[in-house]
Design a protein around this nucleic acid. Structure first.
Length: 135
DNA sequence: GCCAACGTTGGC
DNA sequence: GCCAACGTTGGC
């Protein structure tokens, strides 16, 4: 069981969109590091769902329901997609500022390498963020 | 809207 | 295979 963080711009595809759709394929990754992370995802893994741009906050948890396959939006076989469903909505969003303010999370890739759109998260970090969302 | 960070591309 | 130039992302 692995934990991840996936980023999206809410204007492009938000948590609300995922809830409405019930399931989506996570496509459009065009970065080798992020792609490698997609390939490492297993069915049942959980991913923090992060809104960048205006919100800059983790808003929910998504579950991986289908492991990587050819990205349907391109013929280029270098790129892959996975399928995700909404698992749990956070009671309150955990913002980037919250994460940065918590010393236990200072080594998160989200903080250290903010541009990576699909990144692994340690189980401890995952639990801390869920804890923060409880207030 | 600006700028820093970083990934990718392309020339050599 | 290296590295400079360029484009994109994302935080502020």
């Amino acid at each position: 069981m692995n934990y991840w963080l996936i980023k999206t711009e809410p204007g492009t595809y938000s948590w609300e969109d995922l809830k409405k759709d019930k399931r989506t394929f996570w496509d459009g990754v065009r970065n080798y590091t992020a792609r490698n992370n997609l390939k490492a995802m297993k069915k049942g893994d959980l991913a923090l769902y992060y809104h960048s741009v205006n919100e800059k906050a983790v808003v929910g948890v998504a579950k991986i329901v289908k492991e990587h396959y050819q990205d349907p939006t391109t013929d280029d076989d270098r790129w892959v997609a996975v399928d995700v469903v909404p698992e749990k909505e956070l009671k309150k969003p955990v913002t980037l500022a919250d994460v940065k303010a918590d010393g236990r999370l200072e080594n998160m890739i989200l903080v250290r390498q903010s541009r990576l759109s699909v990144q692994p998260v340690k189980v401890e970090e995952f639990d801390i963020i869920l804890g923060l969302s409880e207030g």
